[in-house]
């Protein structure tokens, strides 16, 4: 262990930058969410009211938007886990030489940003796109299945975009699991599914939780993917916030919407911290 010494100043540039461009606006956001904007004006009035929050939780439009966004995020987590767990296991246990290549390929869409892969998906999912085209060619369908502008389309996009966030923590955890544990389970009579269920899954739990939280938060706040694949027909919470901030120009209300998302994530973070205590290594 290195002693924390006078090296703290190494943090200073980073702290300074984060304070200016993140912390200050963030505090402004908190304050602003309690302010009001009288109808018909663009001026904000300093006050201390929960009016904006009440409006969110009384208007079915926003409540439905919130429910839809949470539902989509959960579904994204579920499918990422379903696809990511076997993938991570394969990467750790089987992909000996391919491993680096696979990891790099997986990270590639992430470093490309959200826009490029999503535009690619438009071509795949559109009525004249690859999926519908092939299904028609094979004679399996007569009419195009609507994928663009549906929740299914958005879900596919979200899973595609955030799967690496699930796989990376899983790989990190599984790498540290000795193969001997799985072999011991097999020698005691466990078939491969039982080895997964009783040994690998419980021991990979920290990675499952970390990955799920990452994917959930990313899906909850994602903006570009649902906007493009939803074709503007499906409003997610992030889109609603953007509408209020950039189109309606009601900044106090937009701040309150953003705060709701932040609070959901904060609640999730608290739950995860609670889960750490359930970890298998007793102190």
């Amino acid at each position: 262990m290195k002693r924390p010494g006078p090296k703290h100043y190494l943090l200073a540039p980073g702290v300074l930058l984060v304070s200016c461009v993140f912390l200050a606006p963030f505090l402004l956001l908190v304050v602003l969410s309690f302010w009001t904007q009288p109808e018909g004006t663009l001026l904000v009035e300093p006050s201390l009211t929960v009016e904006n929050y009440l409006r969110i939780f009384s208007d079915p439009y926003y409540l439905r938007g919130l429910a839809r966004t949470i539902w989509l995020s959960f579904a994204t987590v579920f499918f990422s886990l379903l696809l990511g767990f076997p993938a991570a296991y394969w990467i750790v246990r089987r992909a000996v030489r391919l491993r680096r290549i696979v990891m790099a390929l997986m990270l590639l869409p992430m470093v490309c940003g959200a826009l490029l892969p999503t535009l690619g998906l438009v071509n795949i999912l559109s009525p004249l796109g690859i999926i519908n085209g092939s299904l028609k060619q094979l004679g399996l369908i007569d009419r195009s299945i609507p994928l663009l502008g549906t929740q299914t389309g958005i879900l596919i996009g979200l899973i595609q975009a955030f799967l690496p966030l699930m796989v990376l923590p899983l790989v990190a955890v599984m790498e540290r699991l000795p193969l001997a544990l799985e072999e011991a389970a097999m020698s005691l009579g466990a078939r491969p599914p039982q080895v997964w269920w009783r040994v690998v899954m419980p021991l990979a739990a920290p990675g499952i939780v970390a990955g799920s939280v990452l994917v959930f938060c990313a899906a909850l706040t994602s903006f570009v993917t649902p906007q493009i694949l939803g074709q503007g027909k499906i409003a997610t919470f992030a889109a609603m916030t953007w509408q209020q901030a950039s189109l309606v120009l009601d900044w106090p209300f937009a701040s309150a919407l953003a705060m709701v998302m932040l609070l959901i994530m904060a609640a999730l973070a608290c739950m995860v911290l609670g889960f750490r205590r359930l970890n298998w290594v007793r102190p």
Binding site: A180, W280, V281
Partner: peptide
């Protein structure tokens, strides 16, 4: 089978 490092399920 008894493993060298025991491989008990932690």
């Amino acid at each position: 089978l008894v493993f060298q490092n025991y491989a008990l399920f932690p």
